[in-house]
Amino acid sequence: MPIILENVSFFYSKNTPLEITALKDVNLRIEKGEFVGILGENGAGKSTLIKLFNGILRPDSGKVTIDGLSPSSKKAKSMIGMVFQQAADQLFCRTIYDEIAFGPLNFGYSRKETEERVLEALEAVYLDRTMLSRNPFSLSGGEMQRVALACALALRPDYLVLDEPITGIDPSGKKEILETLKKVKDQGTAVITVTHNLNGLFPLLEKIIHLQEGRISFQGSRKEYLESENVPLPPIAAMMRELKSSGIQVNPALFTVEEALEEILRVKSIIEKKKTEK
């Protein structure tokens, strides 16, 4: 069962002169096990969109359902794990153990079940068990972000939703977060991530939703995304498109260095063959 949004619109400060249209007529469907990227410029409505998934915000018109349930129901909330960009804004316990246990305990799991979930979540984010008794505020930014991720994973969510998970994280922390997300996805959880860092997360995305001024301007597979106009591209894809538009017949829908190199060499050999034939 999926997350479904039907004709969803959302306004901040509705019916006042300060009204802001944050989302307009958004339709989307996210299935379990998908890896979805929500892209768009600052202020496009990405963060607003994900806050609709767990009922933090309610749509002003249209309908949001999580596996057919209302997003503000307890059942639906326990199916959605949220990780926000500013991890430090949520840490408050004396130990990392308590921090990760906060969610499962709130949703009424027993001490024993909670402990199991804490250990599982910690392992999933590649943090060491010796960390459990440490104070979350003694951590580096990257580690804090991973603890916040573990907090969400401890709910064993069906949908893991992340706002800019790797923006501002050092490369090593980044790698571990990406590994975790891959693993979580392979276990059948939907991973939905807001990002404008096209480099790090792009290779993992299967489906892309591009927001522009509160409307969905593109929705489709990554391949379709690379072929469509007026969307921001990762650097390699942008370069390939440049090559194509300057008359070199490469396939522009590529984004990794290896693929690009291979493609360029392929085209080069074709060009050289033509020359010798002449």
Partner: peptide, 12 residues
């Protein structure tokens, strides 16, 4: 508030 609500604070 938003981050804690997402961790089920209101159900605690």
């Amino acid at each position: 508030k938003v981050a804690q609500a997402s961790r089920g604070m209101y159900f605690g």
